[in-house]
């Protein structure tokens, strides 16, 4: 007495290797897409997003599930899940932003939601991992068939992923020698939802003074957005609640807040100083929730 068996018609291809996956995707071109946890695809019809006729399952490919950590650098396989990031990355180390960004998702989603899924989904203003990766100067490695390429994540986010391509890994690096990072997400409920505004903050501090900074806001514009003006506001000063709020005020002026059903535009603009204060407080607390 089941539903129609033709209700979910797309083909699911299970490649045995990354090479095979890349070849399949190249062959399918615009007709296919990689799939990992499938949450985005399965919810596609409900949100009236276009779907494909062929999907290439990549979550089972060990190479894509590898998470390599080396000090301030992470090499993250495309199919690494939010849970892997949350469990594997030190929440107080230089890459803490990634760990913080990964814990906001309920576990049963985090277990299947992948890094590549987060950076390939469009439109997804609240993608936590995208914001964190942008603050960690991420590079995206992808293949079309046997042709490998590498591109800055900021560049990668500007368009849709190239048809026929397979993202294989993302490399993230915290800036500078005394690098620290964190991620703060603001929600309406205490848990279990996408951020209505978030900030990824990475800094290199010389003594008390901020030498370099990355400030990326999520869920504010249509896509996670690095705000250089806010970075400039932090550089050259000690990190403090006041400098954080000042940077947040700069961001509020610079950012082009997108309309959305999650929170009013005015609200998103108004909370940026407070959000920055929380992020800086969290950095001061060594990554602990301040």
């Amino acid at each position: 007495m089941a539903r129609a068996k033709d209700a979910y018609v797309p083909e699911l291809i299970h490649p045995a290797s990354v090479d095979e996956a890349a070849a399949e995707l190249a062959r399918l071109g615009d007709e296919g897409e990689p799939i990992a946890g499938a949450t985005w695809v399965m919810l596609g019809p409900l949100h009236k997003r276009p779907t494909k006729m062929h999907y290439v399952a990549v979550a089972g490919l060990a190479e894509l599930r590898a998470l390599e950590l080396n000090g301030a650098t992470a090499t993250i396989g495309a199919a690494v899940t939010h849970s892997q990031l949350a469990d594997g990355i030190d929440g107080e180390g230089p890459l803490a932003a990634l760990a913080h960004a990964a814990v906001g998702t309920p576990r049963a989603i985090a277990n299947v939601a992948t890094v590549a899924g987060n950076i390939c989904a469009r439109p997804y203003p609240a993608a936590d991992i995208v914001a964190a990766l942008l603050a960690l100067d991420a590079q995206v490695d992808a293949r079309i068939g046997d042709d490998a390429s590498s591109v800055d994540l900021g560049e990668f986010m500007r368009g849709a992923p190239t048809p026929g391509s397979l993202v294989t890994r993302v490399r993230a690096t915290a800036i500078g020698q005394a690098a620290r990072s964190c991620y703060e997400r603001l929600t309406i409920r205490a848990s279990g939802e996408e951020a209505v505004a978030s900030v990824a903050l990475a800094v290199d501090v010389d003594g008390q003074t901020v030498r370099e900074a990355r400030v990326v806001f999520g869920a504010v514009e249509a896509q996670a957005r690095r705000c250089r003006e806010a970075e400039d506001a932090l550089i050259g000063d000690a990190l403090s609640a006041d400098s954080a709020a000042a940077a947040g005020r700069v961001a509020a002026e610079e950012l082009d807040v997108a309309e959305g059903p999650d929170a009013p535009v005015d609200y998103k603009r108004r909370v940026l100083p407070g959000l920055m204060k929380r992020a800086v407080a969290r950095l001061a607390a060594g990554g602990e929730d301040a």
Binding site: I188, R189, A190, S191, G192, P261
Partner: peptide, 12 residues
């Protein structure tokens, strides 16, 4: 949907 119609969670 439960995305923007927010039901309280255990943490609330």
């Amino acid at each position: 949907g439960f995305g923007t119609y927010r039901l309280p969670t255990a943490a609330d």
